[in-house]
Write a protein that binds this DNA or RNA. Structure first.
Lengths: 167, 167
DNA sequence: GTTGTTTGCTTCGAATCCGAAGCACTGAGG
DNA sequence: CCTCAGTGCTTCGGATTCGAAGCAAACAAC
C-alpha cells in the first residue's frame, strides 16, 4: 500500500526471467561438464584462469578476482589453493601492500587454458549461438550489458561492508 | 584443421556470453539473499515451491522437478527432505507407480511462497527490469526462449542414460 | 609513534552439492 | 512364475560452498 503497488510481473517479464535462469543453468552444467572432461577444471577455476590469462601481466589481486567472478572470498581462497597445488597459478604477497595476494597464471596454466578453449568455444557455439542470428546476439549483448552495468552501479540494498559504525 | 575451423568467438558473442554469466550470477546472489531474509528459503527451495504452486494439482514427481529446475537427483532429494521437515511440502509414493515420489505443496508452503513473492518481484524489478524498456524485455524473452528450446531439444552430446548396453 | 579503524586474506565449521552405488518397483520375455 | 533389463529415488562419501571469526598490514587521527 505504499506509493508503488507491487504490481505482479507481466507475462513477458516472467518469460524473460525464467528463460534467463533456465538457459544459464543448462549452459552452465554443460560447460562444467566439458571443462571437467577437457582439463579437469571447475567452472570457477576456468573463469579465474581466463581472467588471469586476459590480463597483460597475467596477474590479479584476490579481491579483484573474487569480485569479477562473483564469488565469496573464502571460496576463492579455496580454489586458488587448488590451482596453486596443480601449478597453474602462483601466489605471492603484493610488493606495495603486504596484505594483498597477487595471483599469477603460470605457463602450465596457460597450457591448460588453451587445451580447454577450443571445446569451450565449440560448446558455446553449439548451444548458445547456433540458434541465434547476428542481430540476436547483438541485442542480447546490448540488453544484458545494460543490466550488468545497472547492477554493478547499484550494489545490493545492504551493501554491507563489515560492521558499519553508524547504521 | 578439420573441415570447420574453431573460429574464435567474435567480440559481440563474447560480450553476450560474459554479460549473461555475470548478470545471472549477480542476480542469483541478490535473489538468494532476499529469499533467505524473507522466508529462510534457498533459491532451489523457492524454485521448487514456485513450480509446485503453479501446478494445478500442487504436485509433481521428483524427477520432473529435478529436470525442470536443472538439479541433480540427489540434490533434489536433499532439498525435498528439508522442505518436508519444515512442513512446506508432503511426499508420498505415486498410486500408479510405487517407485515415483509425488511431492505436493502444503498450505503452509503456499503461505511462505506468498510471503516471499512481493520482495522477490520488487528485487527483480529493481535489478533486472528497471534499466530495460518493454521492447528490451520482449527481445530478451524471445531470444533466450529460443535458446532454451534449442538446448532442451538437443540434450548434451553425452545424453548418458545409465550405462548403455551398446556403446 | 601509538591507538583505533579499515582492509585483504585465510581458517574454521556447518551446510550444501554432486556422482556412484544401492534398493525397490515395473515391464518384457520365456 | 522367474529372470533380466530399465526406471525412480535415496544413501553414501567426498568435494565445494559460504559466512563468521581471526590475523596481519595499512591508514588516520592524535
Amino acid at each position: 500500500m505504499a506509493t508503488e503497488q507491487p504490481a505482479s510481473l507481466d507475462p513477458t517479464q516472467l518469460d524473460a526471467y525464467f528463460a534467463l535462469i533456465e538457459v544459464t543453468s543448462l549452459l552452465r552444467h554443460a560447460v562444467e561438464q566439458q571443462l571437467k572432461d577437457a582439463g579437469d577444471l571447475s567452472y570457477v577455476q576456468f573463469q579465474l584462469l581466463a581472467r588471469l590469462g586476459d590480463s597483460p601481466s597475467g596477474s590479479h589481486r584476490m579481491t579483484d578476482l573474487a569480485d569479477g567472478v562473483v564469488y565469496s572470498r573464502s571460496g576463492l581462497t579455496y580454489q586458488a589453493q587448488l590451482l596453486e597445488q596443480r601449478g597453474l597459478v602462483t601466489r605471492a604477497p603484493a610488493p606495495d601492500d603486504e596484505r594483498s595476494t597477487i595471483v599469477t597464471i603460470t605457463d602450465e596454466g596457460r597450457a591448460v587454458l588453451s587445451k580447454v578453449f577450443p571445446g569451450h568455444r565449440a560448446l558455446l557455439t553449439e548451444l548458445l549461438f547456433d540458434p541465434l542470428t547476428t542481430a540476436d546476439v547483438s541485442a542480447l549483448a546490448g540488453v544484458l550489458g545494460r543490466v550488468r552495468d545497472h547492477m554493478r552501479a547499484a550494489p545490493p540494498r545492504s551493501a554491507a561492508p563489515r560492521r558499519r559504525k553508524g547504521a
